Simulated assay, not measured.
Amino acid sequence: KNRKSCLSSVEAVVVSFGCQEGASHWLQETGCQYDMLLDPDRKIYAAFGLGVSLRKVLNFGNMLLYAEYILKDMKFPRGLPSIQDDMFQLGGDFVLDEHGRVLFSHCCQSPIDRPSVKDILSAQ
């Protein structure tokens, strides 16, 4: 396929391990327009090797960055007090083809570790 036809067939999906109420709230808070799949048993997370890590989430660099965000009065999406969430679950970014083959894989090493858009779009 040429690059133009590949990009026209792309579909972005957000996967969350949370409950429906929390997912709906997050979509509303963030204004996210993508479809969301719920994976409460974290089978998709496990299949892609996405782990849980207190050390990677609460490391000094992340805490310093969050403190800078707070000082700049940046707003964070607020969770619902009635929902317990796992803040130590790490995420990732993946590109799959129409047959389910993984073309690009990035398992986040912290909550702020994301690949560049250029890297994601270069996956073929």
Score class of each variant (00 low, 15 high):
Val13Arg: 05
Val13Lys: 10
Val13Gln: 03
Val14Tyr: 07
Val14Asp: 01
Val14Met: 11
Val14Asn: 03
Val15Lys: 01
Val15Tyr: 06
Val15Phe: 01
Ser16Lys: 09
Phe17Gly: 05
Phe17Trp: 14
Phe17Lys: 02
Gly18Asp: 14
Gly18Cys: 11
Cys19Ala: 06
Gln20Tyr: 00
Gln20Phe: 03
Gln20Leu: 12
Gln20His: 11
Gln20Arg: 12
Glu21Trp: 05
Glu21Asn: 06
Glu21Phe: 01
Gly22Lys: 01
Ala23Asn: 10
Ala23Gln: 03
Ala23Cys: 10
Ala23Tyr: 02
Ser24Asn: 14
Ser24Trp: 05
His25Leu: 14
Trp26His: 09
Trp26Cys: 01
Trp26Tyr: 15
Trp26Gly: 01
Trp26Ala: 08
Trp26Pro: 01
Leu27Ser: 09
Gln28Lys: 15
Gln28His: 14
Gln28Arg: 14
Gln28Asn: 12
Thr30Gln: 05
Thr30Ser: 12
Thr30Lys: 02
Gly31Phe: 11
Gly31Trp: 08
Cys32Met: 11
Cys32Val: 03
Cys32Ala: 14
Gln33Arg: 15
Gln33Glu: 05
Gln33Ile: 13
Asp35Trp: 01
Met36Pro: 00
Met36Ile: 15
Met36Lys: 03
Leu37His: 06
Leu37Ala: 05
Leu38Pro: 00
Leu38Thr: 01
Leu38Met: 14
Leu38Ser: 09
Asp39Lys: 12
Asp39His: 03
Pro40Ile: 05
Pro40Cys: 04
Pro40Glu: 07
Pro40Thr: 09
Asp41Ser: 13
Arg42Tyr: 07
Arg42Gly: 05
Arg42Asn: 03
Lys43Asp: 14
Ala46Met: 04
Ala46His: 12
Ala47Val: 02
Phe48Ile: 09
Leu50Asn: 01
Leu50Ile: 04
Leu50Ser: 00
Gly51Gln: 02
Val52Ala: 06
Val52Lys: 15
Ser53Phe: 11
Ser53Ala: 07
Leu54Ala: 06
Leu54Phe: 14
Leu54Thr: 08
Leu54Ile: 09
Leu54Lys: 13
Lys56Leu: 11
Lys56Ser: 07
Lys56Arg: 15
Lys56Ala: 01
Val57His: 05
Leu58Val: 10
Leu58Met: 12
Asn59Gln: 12
Gly61Ile: 04
Gly61Trp: 08
Asn62Leu: 02
Asn62Pro: 07
Asn62Gln: 09
Asn62Met: 12
Met63Glu: 11
Met63Leu: 15
Met63Cys: 08
Leu65Arg: 13
Leu65Val: 01
Tyr66Glu: 12
Tyr66Leu: 15
Tyr66Gln: 10
Tyr66Ile: 15
Tyr66Ala: 15
Ala67Ile: 12
Ala67Met: 10
Glu68Asp: 08
Tyr69Glu: 05
Ile70Ser: 10
Lys72Ala: 15
Lys72Val: 06
Met74Arg: 14
